[in-house]
């Protein structure tokens, strides 16, 4: 049915527009320490004096170890971190929660190193997960071309059946 397909496309466009509204709304979220939305890399680099004495949360790459200095992520700004027993190496990625005691000085309450090698591992393994789920989706579900709705296949698609072009007979799943 053309109307069903149109309604479906219309609804998806509407929901995507909802996402479109949320992106800028999230970017302009005010700092709210009570809700644990703390000043971060951008806020500190833009107006450090405004947040002096406040709790902040930062992340970045260690550029010097003594004194411990961190180059913040995505902004050209570095801060010194004191009050931590963490002993990272230059180039390590660290995340820090603490108090902004000077425009380029943070007294840490909590800090840890994010292992860099682990990040590549997470990307690779997540990509594999994507392939697995996508292949299951293609094998188990099909799109009804008249309504554009997803429905289960009567029989899971196998490579052999796909090559023979049998998947077309599957549409509908069960008799209406």
């Amino acid at each position: 049915m053309v109307t069903a397909a149109k309604a479906r496309v219309g609804m998806v466009v509407l929901l995507l527009a909802g996402h479109g509204l949320l992106f800028p709304l999230h970017a302009t979220q005010p700092v709210n320490p009570d809700a644990w939305v703390l000043p971060g890399d951008e806020e500190i680099s833009e107006s450090p004096d405004q947040y002096l004495g406040e709790r902040v949360e930062i992340g970045g790459i260690v550029s010097e170890t003594s004194p411990l200095t961190v180059q913040l992520t995505h902004v050209d700004y570095h801060v010194r971190v004191t009050g931590t027993e963490l002993e990272p190496a230059v180039g390590d990625k660290i995340r820090v929660y603490g108090t902004l005691t000077g425009s380029r000085m943070i007294t840490a309450e909590n800090a840890f190193v994010v292992p860099q090698r682990g990040r590549w591992y997470a990307w690779g393994i997540s990509f594999l997960a994507g392939l697995w789920v996508l292949s299951r989706l293609v094998r188990h579900w099909t799109i009804d071309r008249s309504t554009l709705g997803f429905q289960p296949r009567a029989k899971p698609l196998t490579l052999k059946r796909a090559l023979r072009g049998e998947e077309r007979i599957d549409r509908g799943g069960e008799d209406a």
Binding site: V12, T147, G149, F150, Q151, P152
Partner: peptide, 15 residues
């Protein structure tokens, strides 16, 4: 929630 709703809309009515 919005993303889940997109999935729900993409499913055939009876699913």
């Amino acid at each position: 929630l919005l993303s889940v709703l997109i999935g729900v809309v993409l499913l055939a009515d009876r699913e």
